[in-house]
Each structure stands twice: as structure tokens, then as C-alpha cells.
Nucleic acid binder design. Sequence first.
RNA 1: GCGCCCGUAGCUCAGAUGGAUAGAGCGAACGCCUCCGAAGCGUUAGGUCACAAGUUCGAAUCUUGUCGGGCGCACCA
Length: 669
Amino acid sequence: MYRNYRQSLFEHLRAVLGEKFQVELPRLTVEEPPKVEMGDYALPIAFELARTLRKAPCKIANELVAAIGSVPGFTGFKVAGAGYINCRLDRNEAAHQLAARVERLPQGIDFILVEHTSINPNKAAHIGHLRNAILGDTLVRMLRAANYQVGVENYIDNTGVQVADVVVALAHLQQMNLAGVERWMRELAARKERIDYACWDLYANVSQWYEAEESEKQARKQVRLDTLHALEVGGNETAAIAERVSTAILRRHLETMLRLGIEYEFLPRESEILHLHFWDAAFALLKQTGVLYPETEGKNAGCWVMRRAGTAGADGESPGRPDEEAKVIVRSNGTVTYVGKDIAYHLWKFNKLGLDFGKRVFRIYGTPPNERICWISCEPNLNDPTVEPSYFGKADAIYNVIDSRQADPQNNVIEALRGMGFAHEADNYHHFSYEMVALTPRSAMELGYLVSDEDQKRAYIEVSGRKGFGVKADDLIDKLIRAAKAEVDARHSERGEDDRQSIARKIAVGALRYYMLRYTRNTVIAFDFQDALSFEGETGPYVQYAIVRAANIFRKAGVTPEEALQQFESIDASPYFSGADGDSLWELWLLASKSVHVLERCIQSTEPAYMAKYAFQLAQQFSNFYHRHHILTEADPVRKTLLLATAAITQRELIRALAWMGMEAPDVM
RNA sequence: GCGCCCGUAGCUCAGAUGGAUAGAGCGAACGCCUCCGAAGCGUUAGGUCACAAGUUCGAAUCUUGUCGGGCGCACCA
């Protein structure tokens, strides 16, 4: 609603400026007045026009107000300050519009592919992965709320060095063959131990083993390389071990994410990219378009390389000399680098490769009739013949949720696409970048890690899977649920155990998702248990609590929010929207009307944190309202209807905002 | 050395397209449950927006420089 009025104001203004002032501004700024009693939109155009029209802003503003005349939905335009034009909505009318229907965004036409999570399947997920998955899942929910068609992928690097390292730990250090590994996995299961946790330690140990003996270092690194090579080639026992272990860990990752309500539709794996020869097709295209060229001299002699974005290239400053800054795509031994494989994969995403993954069912979410299939890549001869997820591999736009440290390789892929003539695809390739999650020294010490004096002085310490340094995702979720459960137990002894557990889970998820979303993307989160486990102040549970309080009012009043809004339709609220009291009431309605406007802003700027901030502010104003007005004892029936409608509207928009962030309020808390 | 990001209250962070008196949360002090639930609300204290110059009607926001911090810049992924 706020968005609609803003647009009609915008259009009206554009027309007036064109007709009466013969000016056309490339963009009109519409702001918000600092105080609600001043109006609902503020226009600073008079300042912008002052120079070109050579008149005082105040004078221009007055002329503009006269020229604007009347706009449907608005009651007046007033000049304020040094030349602002403050626009005031017809509060009663706007409130009735808001109450009458749930506003949505216009239909998005494109198919958008979002890739997130993408954890190496060799160890348990940690808090850094949680930030990635929560950001990605929230982006998906927001795009879907805006009526885009969205596909969700989780890329699985099942043939990379990280998986190879765990295989080295099992096959080389512990001398296990395939049967041995399978027995080990059965034993873990029998002891109810988790393979992702077990591998967390194995991975840290083997990383240490590589470095431990100086004299052995070379030989040990060779074991790693040989193992990696065996995984890439496939069809051998080492690869089979990797397949068993990485798939079991992948299943664990999906379970972890499902606890937060995060699901995937397709799991493309690197093994298929290799076995289906995606690279060969990409290589041909890259050579054909001249993006890739063979280097004959210098440090990269014998490699196929591409010019790095932002550099002069081989014909730049010193023609004839090799471009030493070039990015190696094919090594001198003929193997392909990560960026090379990624180029092939992204050609597939945009349907420019002429090849496709086979797909089979990996797991099913939900229960009939509401089932969602999660597909995994496979060889085409194993392809599931029944259902084909049609849209993967032909995206109009893509979002890759990947941390900011990988900005360079991401740009390499984008520039390769552009170089191949896929400018439109390159423009619609979005690296959804975010900063890492680190640990505060305090949290690190709480976890029992040894923290050097030097590190203790730092604001945060980077987590490291290789060192086994970090907070495991499930441990954190367990801890949050336990903390929430203790609070619920203390408040709701009348409820059954299952009930309390379910409430605690919603609160824990709300706290965690909010915590990961409240920081803007380019802020490093210095993870702190005290902050993350807090349910007070600017947190998810605070917002949930506002919803629960509203629900309590309706329960005690004996009406549903829908009925309250229906009753509101027949009253004239105008008298109650004036004066200081009316201003504060209207302020809540106005804020509630902004949800879709905020959603649009979040998508445009790919910044989910705005929604978190918005939900908190709306909850905060509701708490304010809750304390100021005692609804159930209100004597004036018209006023009571208005107050109930206020609670209904706020609750409705809070629930929507939380849903866009993957959060849900329990019925009590 | 080059590139990207950051520096705002004691701490953690917001401040979209330059705009009206720079805001939250936490922490601190004090107050509010006979009341729709206190996971809440109110009051108070707390700021040279790192520093300097510039651009202009106007700068936390734009430009340049300085200082301080983070992250990248592999024939790793």
C-alpha cells in the first residue's frame, strides 16, 4: 500500500513537472519525513530545482504545491523546513485499503536459479555455512514472495581436495579398504555417532599430518595428490570410498539445514561435471571464442590461460611478452583448474553448453500430498525416467551465495562468459557476496580452544575446518533449543513435553535465523554465544513475542484477526487518527503498510538485513502500542474496533515478514 | 606492491537514491506486574561519525590524501 501510493505520487509529480515546469528529472527522490505528524512522504525536489530555475527552494516548493493540486488518496501537500514538500495521506482511506487486502508484488516473469550452502562433504557444517544457507534460503523465499520462479541448488564438490583429505585419513592412515570403511560407517551408526562429526576430527588430523614431518612432507603431499587424482578419474576403490563417505555426510548436511526449514531442489555434483565431460564442451567454446589461449613462455608456459579482469592482457603494456597475470585454466599437466570447471558449470546454468546432468531422486521432503523432491546429479543412463525437473539448466538470472573471499574467481567466470559473447548472461550473473562468520576470542576460549595472546587482542578469529576450529551447526542449534526449552518450561508447565519442545524449536530457529540476518552482508559476524543465545532486545524471539501477544488479545477478545478487520470495514476511523494519540496510532499503520516496499528493496539491493530491521521495528512499535492502549477494556466500541484492527494488521504483516525470512512464531511462548 | 571491503555511543551494529535535531540493541543507573503475559515498557547518561583537505545551498554518505584494521591477488578449491 505504501508502495502503491508512492508510485502514484511519483507519476503525478512527473506529469506536473513536465507540463508546468518543462523539466524532466531522471529520478525523483521520495523520502520520509522525520516525524509522522509532518506527513508520510517528503519531496526534496525544490532543492534540486533551485539551481536550474535560479529561484529560492522555498518559493519553488510553494509554486509546486499549487501546481500539484489534488492527488487521489492524499489530503494535502505542505511546504516545510527550507523547502521540503510534505505529503499527507488520507489516513482513514489508506487504513481501509490496507485492511481490505493483502498486498503483493507484481508477477516476476523470470526464472531465477539460486545456489547456496555448497559445503564440502567432508566434515560437519559450521556457523559459517549457516550464514550462507540462511542468506540463500531467505533470498529464495523473498524472490518467491515476489512471484519469481525460483530453483534452488546446492553444489556438491565431491571430488575435491577436501574430500580427498578425509579419504587419505581413512584409506591411508587407517589402512581401510572399501569394506572396512563400510564397516566403520555401520559401527558409527550403531553407536549413534555421526559421520560428519567423526570426519571433522579426521580432517583436522590429516591436515596436521601433512605438515608434521618435514622429511616426509613431500611424500605425504604426494599421497594426497594421488588420492585426488583417483577421485577425479573415478571407477576405482578410492573413488568408491569417497562416494560412500561424501554422500553420507551430504545426507547429514541436508538434515542439519532441514532443522532450519531449508530445502533444496537439485544437488549438482562435481563428479558428473567431470564424467559427463562438461569441460570438453566448454574448452572447445573457450578456444573458439579466443578467451583461452596457449601460453608458450614465462612461468605459465605450457598452460591454457585467460586474461584476468582489470588487467591489460598480453597485448597491453608490453606486447610480445607473456601476460604473467593471466589466470591458468588448464595446467601444464593437462588437468583443469577449479575456475575452468566452474566456467563449464555456469555455461550449463545458462543452457549454453549443449549438455545436461542426469537426475535421480535423492530424497523427498514433506509427506503426501505435499511432497517436494530433491534431485541429485547422476550419469544419464541412471536418469530417473518418471519426472524431469524442467527448469534447471536454463536460468534467466542466477545468484551464487558465496563468501566475499571468492570474489576474484567469481569474476573470472563472469568475464569468461562475457568473453564468449554471453554478455546478457554475464550481466545476470550475481555473486551474492557476504562476509565470513568468525569467533570472538571469548567464544573460542569458552569452547576450550587455546587462544594465543596475540589472537586474544583481536576482535575476531577466523574459523578453520582444516584446524578443526569452529562451532558446529548442530551443536549451536542444540544449544539454542535447550536454552529456549528452559524458558518455555519455566513459563508453560501446563503444556505437554512435545508441545514445549516444538515451541522451543521455533524460538531457537527464530533466534538463529534472525541473528544471521540482522547483520548486513558485508559485515563480518564476530560470533558470540552470549549474543546468539539472547532472546531479548533486537532478536527473532522479540518479534515472535509481539505476534504471540497479538494472538493473546484476539483469544481473550473472542474474535479472529479476520473478523476484527471485517468489523473495521464499516467504521470511520478519521476522528481517531488525529491529534498526538492519532499520530502514534497512524505511525503503526503506516509502518505496517511498508512490508512489500521493504521486500522490494531487499530484492533490488539483495540485502535481507533490511527485512530483519523492519520486522524488529514493527514489533517494537507494536509493543509500544500494546503498552499505551488497553484494548480489551476499551469502552468506546468504535475505538475498540480500530485498536483490534491495528493489532490484526500489525500481526498479519509481522507474520509475513517473518515468513519471508523463514521464521515462524509459536502460538504461545 | 596491486585490488576489494571496513573505521559511527563503553560493546555489537543500522543509517538506500547527498537532506530536517545522527538512531537501535546490549551493557550501566533508576522506575513500572491487582492490569490483553515483564522474552515487555518508560526515564537518564553516553557522539570531534578515524583524521585532513575538497566538491555545494547542504556531507556520516561523494572526491583525494593520511592513519588504522580485514580479505583477496596459486599450475588449491
